[in-house]
Each structure stands twice: as structure tokens, then as C-alpha cells.
Design a protein around this nucleic acid. Structure first.
Lengths: 203, 203
DNA sequence: AAAATTTTTAATCAAATGATTAATTCCGGA
DNA sequence: TCCGGAATTAATCATTTGATTAAAAATTTT
């Protein structure tokens, strides 16, 4: 009962992808050796090239996936003309913080990907209408015409994403933050919307 | 008139360091080849090892420099018991945004360094008293006992630093932000302190 | 100027690494 | 059962890359 192939949990192809996700996310493209991935997947090195042609092709696959989960969460919310501004802010904060709590390496991975391959990144986001034309930007502008909506868009991302990117640094600067990190991030689900509302009042 | 050695601008050792700063900052440790550095410095590859022993040693030198400029700007301000909370916030925002405008690759470099070598990073910051014991933390707590000072410390860094880290992404998501980036960052020198004051009122 | 020391270079090495090849194993359909 | 294609592997290649060596050039010291 199930699929036609009742494999031991995962197909080789999927094991490789899974290992690639893990290793690429942890070490980045350049520091990752294809042998690392093969070992983590428990398969022969040649299989990697058999299924994915090259290290670069495999990386692009992973990158596309990760960029999708990062921006896929954001764009639909920004666009939605139905929901209120406060709803959007709340939704973004809540979902991002949850997602990043489960994927702590995602922010740095995405930031590096965007920096190292802006062309590919741009191609991947082809067809996405500019953020400043979004319902979100319009609602921001309406609520506070004195501050460019760009700023508040940057701010909500900063407040949600950056803490995860700098977590390793925070843990050194303040071990207390390290131990409470998860609790702090949970608190931020409610705090970020409050802070955003407060910032929206600033002229 | 000047030094005893009137070299053609820079000594070989300094040319290598300068090139290493540039290449390491642009591509990161793993993606950088020592030959890239030698070429950028206009010197023979063997000279790099002659002066600095190894790629890793040279990288650590650069990393130390960059971490110092990143945190050297922050820690003294946090500690100062004289200045007011508002002064501290204003100073941090102003200085960070100026510095990062001149060193756009610094944030991602520092974030990666902290993630990839937390031990070395910790060793480098040895002797630095924890942020939560700083005058800054105490003043935050005093001004708003309802929100953990950790949050507001995270927030000011997020609002100042993250925009530079995600600039390449912002430029794709919104070309307008790309063209105005510098102007926007200048505006933030005044906006971040206003936003922080507004956030400090949030219970 | 000669000797000694430091700086610089071309050539080379050994290890690492992405990729390929050719052989072997596995598996479903005739 | 045997065939044929797909999956998997061990062995190998070619290139890249960090590092070293030995010699040459430049500089300093005596």
C-alpha cells in the first residue's frame, strides 16, 4: 500500500537532494565538496553526477527551493488587496519567525545567494511585480505619507530576519541571549507588529 | 621627506594585505584562491606564503581587522556611562550607517565569519563584558522595564545593519530602492533614532 | 666592493576535487 | 529464465589549488 516502489524510505535521488540541502545550507557553495554531499547521502559520488550532472546544477536546484520558501512566504501577503495593513504585518512577522526558527541557516544562505548570483536571483524572481506597486506599499503610504514605504518594508524584514542571521554573534556577545533565543523570537511575533505600528506613527 | 623608505606607494606586504581585504570581502574565504589575491596584489604567489605563511593565517588577519571595525564602533558606545540613551542610539545609527555606506560588504562578511568560526570570534572578543551588563542595557531597562533590553539591542542593529546585507536582494525586488539606496540610508540616520524612541514606548 | 641578508621569482609538488568511464548489480517485462 | 535498461560502484582523470623549493635579484651591512 502506497507507491509502486516501496523503497527504504527515500530514493537515491531524493537522498542526494536532502543531503545537498543540508550541506549547502551549512557550508555554502564554495566550501562544500561533492564528496561531502555523497557521504551525507550515503551514496557513491558518481551517483550525484548521474542524477544532477554537476555540483552547480545541484546547487541551483537547492537555491531555487530555498529562495522560493523565503520569498514565497512574503510576496503573496504583500500583494493581497483584501487584508489590512495590520493584518499583513502580523502575518509576515508570525510566519517568518516561525519559519526561520525551523530553518536557522536560511537567512545567511539567501543573503549570500543574492549577493553571489544576483543575475540568477533576478531571473528566478522574474515576473514578480515590484514591491513598491504592492498593496502593502500603498497601504503604508496611506497610513503614513511622511516616510517612504521602502523604509518600513526594509524594517519589517530587518526586525524579523536579521536576528536569525546574527544569532551566532549574539550568542558570543551575550550568552544569555543564546540560551533564551527561542523564547525571545517567540516574543517577537507579537512585539514586531507593535513596534511597526509605533514606527508608522513617526513622521 | 617622509619615511626612510620611499617605496612605490606600498610595500609588498601591504599590497598583499590590501588585496586580501578586497578579495576575501568580495568572495569569502572558501571561494577565494590565493592566486586571486596574488594577482590582485600584483605579486608572485610565493610571496604571499613568504609573508603570511598560509591562506588561513592571512584570512584571520583580515577577519580580525574587520571584526574590530565592526564591533569597535559599537562596544565603546554601549559602555559609556556618561552619554544618555538617546545619545547612544543616535551615535550608533549615525556611525554604523556611515561606516557601512563605505564598506557595503562588511555585514555579510562579519555574519559569515561569526557563523563559520564562532570559536575564533569568541576568542577575539575575549574580555568584552556582556552586552546585558552595559550602560546601554541598563538605560534601556530603565526607560522601558516591560520589554527585555535584548530586543531593543537586536533592533537597533537590525535597523542599521540589515539593509546593507540585503541590498542586492532589495535591488532586484525593487529597482527603485537600488537607485535611491544611498539616499535612503542617509535618511535612516535620523529615522532610526526616531523609530527607536517610538519602540521604547511600546509595552 | 665584497659579503650577508632580505626580497622576489619560476618551477614544481602533493593533495584535493569535480567529473567521467567502464564494469557490475539490480529489477521488471517478455 | 533470460533480456535490456536503469541504478550503482570502483577506479581513474584532469584540473585546480595551497604550499614549497631553489635560484636569482635587490638591498643592506661591513
Amino acid at each position: 500500500m502506497a507507491k509502486k516502489k516501496q523503497q527504504e524510505a527515500l530514493s537515491s535521488e531524493e537522498k542526494i537532494k536532502e543531503a545537498a540541502r543540508k550541506v549547502f545550507m551549512e557550508k555554502g557553495y564554495a566550501a562544500t565538496r561533492t564528496r561531502d554531499i555523497a557521504e551525507a547521502a550515503g551514496i557513491n559520488l558518481a551517483l550525484l553526477n548521474y542524477y544532477f550532472r554537476s555540483k552547480e546544477k545541484l546547487f541551483e536546484l537547492v537555491m531555487q527551493e530555498k529562495l522560493s520558501s523565503f520569498f514565497g512566504l512574503l510576496l503573496p501577503v504583500l500583494r493581497d488587496p483584501q487584508s489590512s495593513l495590520d493584518d499583513k504585518i502580523h502575518t509576515i512577522a508570525d510566519r517568518y519567525i516561525s519559519m526561520l526558527a525551523d530553518n536557522p541557516d536560511l537567512p545567511l544562505f539567501v543573503l549570500n545567494a543574492m549577493r553571489n548570483a544576483p543575475k540568477k536571483f533576478a531571473a528566478l524572481l522574474k515576473g514578480v511585480d515590484h514591491v513598491l506597486d504592492s498593496a502593502f506599499a500603498k497601504q503604508l503610504k496611506e497610513r503614513n505619507p511622511d516616510v517612504a514605504p521602502e523604509h518600513l518594508f526594509i524594517n519589517i524584514l530587518s526586525l524579523c530576519v536579521f536576528p536569525f542571521a546574527m544569532r551566532p554573534g549574539l550568542e558570543v556577545i551575550s550568552p544569555e541571549i543564546g540560551t533564551q533565543f527561542h523564547v525571545l523570537m517567540e516574543e517577537r511575533k507579537k512585539l514586531v507588529p507593535k513596534w511597526m505600528r509605533a514606527m508608522l506613527k513617526v513622521k
